[in-house]
Amino acid sequence: MQQEEQQKIFQNILEQHKGILFKVARTYCRDEEDRQDLIQEIMIQIWQSLHKYNDKFQITTWLYRISLNVAISHYRKRKVRKDKFITLKENFTQISAADSSEKEQLLLQLERFISELKEMDKALVLLYLENKNYNEISEILGITVSNVSTKVGRIKEKLKRRFTQNK
């Protein structure tokens, strides 16, 4: 693959699937600087693994594997970065504020409960909430479908309990 062609594919992948990178970073890092650091690390790994991409897997499966693997092994290196790689539009906060506050509160609670989970469980719950089916989750995590189902069931129960306790 030519360097230029590879760059184009890389940019297209990032443009189309930037949400995956952002959501993985948001799930694993609460701090904005850490998040940007993690996003950059994920982008580097995607770029370096691009030549190995095997199209027998969906591109999203491949991206989730890289993003989650990097996120789980990212031990707060804290190289403070000034560059922002993926950000939200400036007026996003205004759009959010206009939203129903109860929904916002519930979402904040959900994010907090997810942040309390262990690394592997965070990956599982993110994929579940992203509406991935059990087969895809099994391919991304490398566990059996029945194992996915059992684990998802347990985590859902855990989240439900946390919401009930918080009422």
């Binding site: 443009e15 959501k23 982008m43 580097i44 790689f85 993926i86």
Partner: peptide
């Protein structure tokens, strides 16, 4: 999750220059 993420995805901006620098 879906309703919020939809909005987040629509409002995400990729910094093309930084991405190309990578």
């Amino acid at each position: 999750w879906k309703s919020y993420n939809q909005k987040v995805e629509e409002n995400l901006v990729l910094n093309q220059k930084n991405a190309s620098d990578i």
